[in-house]
């Protein structure tokens, strides 16, 4: 079956419709089928509809996403309770070890993101991977720093990513490769994203899954869960009425 490619992290300014529209048409042109944009919690229905229409015109599927940047584990659980049923994807930007551990433990978290290029601030180790594998959370890797960094900084980042990718593979934690950019010129075709993923030793199949199967699986699973017919994993409402 033909792969359907997804980029779960494009970061245009949602309030700037022109920028959103340019990013959406670029994503369609590059061959993506599904994109996700991080929305601020106070996004109005009108803004969302406008972006959905732009995506529909470009023949793209749009998933809503929120990036949580909690300071404490309690902060994280509070935000998850508040936003889980409002967004299709929840990503947690882990800036401390406590938050990273809590995010990996919580089954409501979809993506674990470690934005820092400093290896001391990246908390995806074996313990984190073990927790993530039990809670179905995925590791998100943005390719933007791979393009913008140069020299020793890029070498160090590649070394960290190589280690994280190996750990994720060992614990069967799905890896998601995203752009993480708001600039059209930093967007790359899905195949190029997969080739960039091979820089940190992902094999070709894994790299292609990271831009197609893995992100699509998260969105499908969450859409089922957010559907009014969903009761519990594996149980959904088929028919409602007196004759049942």
């Amino acid at each position: 079956m033909k792969r359907q490619y997804a980029d779960l992290h494009l970061t245009p300014n949602i309030r700037d419709f022109q920028q959103v529209s340019a990013i959406v048409s670029k994503a369609a042109q590059l061959g993506y089928h599904l994109i996700a944009l991080p929305f601020p919690p106070n996004t109005t229905q009108e803004e969302l509809k406008q972006i959905q229409t732009a995506c529909k015109e470009a023949k793209l599927d749009l998933a809503t996403r929120i990036d949580l940047k909690p300071r404490t584990p309690n902060d994280l659980t509070y935000n998850l309770r508040k936003f889980r049923r409002k967004f299709e994807i929840i990503a947690v930007i882990c800036e401390s070890k406590n938050v990273a551990r809590q995010a990996a433990k919580d089954h409501r978290v979809d993506l674990l993101s470690f934005p820092s290029t400093d290896f001391r601030q990246r908390f995806f180790d074996m313990a984190e991977a073990e927790l993530a594998s039990e809670s179905q959370a995925s590791l998100e890797i943005n390719t933007r720093p791979l393009l913008t960094l140069e020299g020793p900084a890029r070498s160090r980042l590649l070394a960290s990513l190589r280690k994280e990718a190996a750990i994720a593979k060992g614990f069967k934690v799905p890896i998601i490769i995203s752009s993480g950019t708001s600039n059209e010129l930093l967007m790359r075709k899905p195949q190029e994203q997969a080739v960039l993923a091979q820089l940190f030793d992902l094999d070709r199949e894994c790299a292609l899954d990271a831009v197609s199967r893995n992100p699509n699986r998260i969105v499908t699973r969450n859409r089922q869960k957010l559907s009014p017919k969903f009761i519990a994993p594996g149980i959904r409402l088929v028919k409602k009425g007196k004759d049942c």
Partner: peptide
């Protein structure tokens, strides 16, 4: 081939002007 493709993907500037090169 993969080395070439990865390198092409990392090009973001030519003569300090922003560019992107797609295969």
């Amino acid at each position: 081939l993969n080395m070439t493709r990865a390198s092409i993907a990392t090009i973001i500037k030519i003569e300090e002007k922003p560019v992107a090169i797609h295969v």
